[in-house]
Design a protein around this nucleic acid. Structure first.
Length: 559
RNA sequence: GCGCCUGUAGCUCAGCUGGAUAGAGCGUCUGACUACGGAUCAGAAGGUCGGGGGUUCGAAUCUUCCCAGGCGCGCCA
């Protein structure tokens, strides 16, 4: 438990006692005690902690809130750290603590090191985060990039919050778009062999398709012009998928994203899992036939329309294999399955939840994070991206132009809900003013202090034997206070699947470090103060590094 | 037409699930020590939280109705 949590719990307990005492002596008459919560006020002047308990009691007790607050304050017995209790505003009870409490966490941070900030909300329960899952028929675009940054950070945060996390990429290597893919590959291949075959209008027109066919031809020559169409297509598709997947893996890895599982859709078909699932739904009475197709009765589960599972041509839809895939996830024992999807798929959410219910699971095990689309600006104009026109900026381009750290921070600092305008020129031209450098610079600055210390023959003092009461400057208190918040931020970010909270937290923490740095020196002749400050900045360095790690961003020692 | 997301400073966005005087960055303006790294710091200006009603001690946050933008509503994925 973090220092903040410990004190909060202590105050809540003391308040409960105060309320109990007030009821026993008849000063407050209520039937049932409300839930007691102690929060951290936004305004520093309102104390270190505060409670709205008096306002909640006012109505049931039929008393003025400030009067209730007075009674609560009178019966309140202060613990170790409470200096004074005040009543303010409409009836808040504010707790002012002795300044030293903020330094309690410093020795802990240093001794916990890379583990500082980790919490155990998950208690080891199995959670899967599935993200990107782009069609392996093309390159990764800006939407995939956002999904990669978001999904990977969510996974990292959940892991830090005590969950047993699996990162998974679902490969859509079956179905319609593969046929479509084959059409385009075949056309390009035959074109290279001198035949005049156009790429279908709704096919893949990107240059990468041509490049794939060129390397295929380098290996196999024109030999596949002679074989049966079916064999030619399957050879081309197999070759292209392997090449594409390899390149996707590499680019994502360059972006700092590494998966535990690459799951093939085709493998579900091969194992008969799609048929099994359809059979299961049939036995449950959740399907029916109409106009030659097999339908899922989504309307039985509160969805406004039924959905086709098997087309009248006998081929299962994407929805059918997706149900089988999610069934497979749940059979693997995940207590929580998180999918990161683009907003253009949001209509799929209620259907999928209905299907999970039909399979006999609680739909709440599936949580879909919908991220709004990325709009790309270049030269002040929107860049329309489409696979058909072959015009788009890839993740690879992005890493090259903006850099991995800045790109990841840019995606993470905004909530998934926000529509993201990504101005390439801005990201490029002003990359030195990107907030991510501000945070990294704070880390590098501390490392520089440590190098100075070493050069002067100094040593990092033992955090357990420091007189922290020497740290009386405003910025020292503020910095230490912020450090103590980190575990709470991790908890909140995990609960809300909200990596942007960590990004904001780090930015604020870096700001406090810079302010402190500009007004006070760490290495000074006064040994005791210097030692306390060394621990303070070392704790800051650790926290910055741990936080940046959750976002997949480097914490450089020099810049 | 129905559904989901969004609307907060000139621009890009936060706002801890209902708290007290709404915050950052960029941009603009004024300043900073020959210094452990100036990719920094201190300060100023800038707001009817899209608009109207409602809920209550208290609303940017919940609710409802408008307005504006994005995305969905296929036997595509």
């Amino acid at each position: 438990m973090s220092v903040v949590e410990e004190i909060r719990a202590e105050l809540e307990k003391a308040l409960a006692h105060s309320l109990q005492a007030s009821r026993e002596c008849g000063l407050i008459k209520i039937d049932q005690a409300p839930e007691i919560t102690v929060e951290v006020p936004r305004e520093k002047d309102h104390g270190d902690f505060a409670t709205n308990l008096a306002m909640l009691l006012a109505r049931p007790a039929r008393m003025a809130p400030r009067r209730v607050a007075e009674i609560l304050a009178q019966n309140f017995s202060a613990g170790t750290w409470v200096e004074r209790v005040e009543i303010a505003g409409p009836g808040f009870v504010n707790f002012y603590l002795k300044p030293g409490w903020v330094y309690l966490s410093l020795p802990r941070i240093v001794s916990q090191g890379a583990r500082y900030g980790s919490v155990d909300n998950g208690r080891g329960s199995k959670v899967q985060v599935e993200f990107v899952s782009a069609n392996p028929t093309g390159l990764l675009h800006m939407g995939n990039a956002r999904g990669a940054a978001l999904g990977d950070s969510i996974a990292a945060i959940l892991k830090f919050a005590g969950y047993d996390v699996t990162r998974e990429f679902y490969i859509n290597d079956a179905g319609n778009q593969i046929e479509n893919f084959a059409d385009s590959l075949e056309a390009r291949y035959l074109q290279l062999a001198g035949q005049d075959i156009p790429v279908p209008e709704d096919g893949y027109h990107g240059e990468d398709i041509m490049a794939t066919c060129i390397s295929f031809r380098e290996k196999h020559g024109d030999s596949y012009t002679e074989v049966a169409e079916k064999d030619r297509r399957s050879a081309l598709v197999a070759f292209a998928l392997e090449e594409k997947l390899e390149s996707i893996k590499n680019v994502l890895s360059d972006f700092g994203v590494d998966y535990d599982v690459w799951f093939s859709e085709q493998s579900l078909h091969d194992a008969g899992a799609v048929q099994d699932t359809l059979e299961f739904l049939r036995e449950k009475g959740c399907v029916y036939e109409r106009e030659g197709a097999l339908w899922f009765k989504a309307t039985d589960f509160g969805v406004d329309k039924d959905e086709v599972l098997v087309r009248s041509n006998g081929l299962p839809t994407y929805f059918a294999s997706d149900i089988a895939y999610h069934r497979n996830k749940l059979q693997r024992g995940f207590a929580w399955a998180i999918d990161v999807w683009g907003a253009d798929h949001h209509g799929h959410v209620p259907r999928m939840k209905a299907a999970i219910k039909a399979l006999g699971y609680d739909p709440a095990v599936l949580e879909v994070v919908i991220m709004q689309l990325v709009r790309l600006y270049k030269g002040g104009e929107i860049v329309r991206m489409s696979k058909r026109s072959g015009q788009f900026v890839t993740l690879e381009d992005l890493i090259e132009e903006v850099g991995r750290d800045a790109a990841r921070y840019f995606f993470i600092m905004r909530s998934a809900d926000s529509h993201l305008d990504f101005d390439l020129d801005l990201a490029r031209s002003e990359s030195n003013e990107n907030p991510v450098y501000y945070i990294q610079y704070a880390h590098a600055r501390i490392c520089s202090i440590m190098r100075q210390l070493e050069e002067q023959g100094g040593q990092m003092p033992d955090p357990g034997s420091i007189d922290y009461s020497l740290l009386i400057e405003e910025y020292e208190l503020a910095l230490a206070r912020k450090l103590a918040d980190f575990p709470g931020e991790v908890t909140a970010a995990a609960a809300g699947l909200a990596p942007q909270r960590i990004a904001r937290y780090l930015h604020e923490l870096a700001g406090l470090l810079h302010s402190f740095y500009n007004s006070h020196r760490v290495i000074i002749p006064e040994k005791d103060i210097s030692a306390a400050r060394l621990v303070l900045v070392e704790a800051t360095r650790i926290t910055l590094k741990n936080g940046l790690g959750l976002l997949g961003i480097n914490a450089p020692e020099r810049m």
